Computed example of a mutant assay.
Amino acid sequence: MKTWIKRSLYSLVGASIVLGGLSACGHNRHGHGSSMSAEDQAQMRGKIVERVSSKLDLNAEQKQRLNVLADKLQEQRAALVGKTTNPRADMQALVAGDKFDRSRAQTLVAEKTAAITGKSPEVIAAMADFYDSLTPAQQTKVREAMQKGRHGWWHRG
């Protein structure tokens, strides 16, 4: 497998873990991460950055790259959520009539896909920049945390 493909896959997996951590923290505290105020989101993001920084013993440059990654992930998440204030209502609207609204469902999928596709290059670049700035020992810690699964040291507790 080509190096750039491997890096892209690792970046996407790593970004998914970080995004999952952001979402899980937001979900556990407020029910839905999207309902958090901007101040709450910034506070939660700061806690996550500090936790990862502490676990990996990051230097100032690495921490700055982690902050850029967190910013890009937050931007992608905001783009994915989009203008929707109530995703449940959007889903309920698909089955509100006697027929499933296929065209609206396809539109929703297209909107979400466009949001992911549009922001992914920035997220991948930020993840790659962060990961590549890590020492081999720090990279090993990241891989080990990923092997532990969702409830590794990325998770609260």
Rank of each mutant, 00 (worst) to 15 (best):
G82S: 13
V123K: 09
K99A: 12
T140M: 04
A125C: 05
V52T: 14
M91G: 05
G118T: 00
T113Y: 00
A70V: 03
E50T: 08
I116V: 10
T84I: 15
L12W: 14
Y10M: 11
M146L: 02
T135M: 12
S103R: 10
G157A: 12
M36R: 05
V95Y: 10
I116L: 10
F100M: 07
E75N: 06
D71N: 13
L108D: 01
A89K: 15
L73D: 11
G21H: 07
E50D: 11
E39G: 11
V68S: 08
A93F: 07
S34V: 03
S54R: 01
R156S: 14
D129T: 08
G97E: 06
N67R: 14
W153R: 13
L73K: 06
V49F: 07
L73C: 06
I48K: 09
E61A: 01
I5S: 11
L58N: 14
Q139Y: 07
R77S: 15
L9C: 13
I48A: 09
E111S: 04
T3R: 13
R51Y: 06
M146G: 01
E111F: 00
Q147T: 10
A60L: 02
L108F: 04
K119Y: 05
T135F: 10
K148R: 14
V18E: 12
K112H: 00
R156M: 15
N86W: 04
H30E: 06
A137W: 08
L19E: 14
K63Q: 13
F100S: 03
S8I: 09
A89L: 15
Y131L: 12
S16T: 15
S35E: 14
Y131V: 11
K63V: 03
K141Y: 04
S23C: 09
A114Q: 02
Q138I: 00
H30T: 08
R7I: 14
H30W: 11
V18S: 09
R7G: 11
Q74R: 07
V123Q: 08
K72I: 04
T3K: 14
V142A: 15
H155R: 12
I124Q: 08
L56D: 10
I48N: 06
H155S: 12
R65K: 12
A24W: 13
G33F: 08
E75A: 07
V81G: 13
M1C: 14
I116N: 03
K119R: 10
D132R: 01
N86T: 05
Q106V: 07
I116G: 04
A79S: 01
V109G: 04
N59P: 06
K119F: 02
A145M: 00
R143Q: 10
R156P: 09
R102I: 02
V123H: 06
E39N: 10
P121S: 06
L80E: 00
M127H: 05
G46W: 04
L94R: 06
D101Y: 05
R156G: 13
L66F: 03
M1V: 15
G82V: 04
H30C: 06
A78G: 01
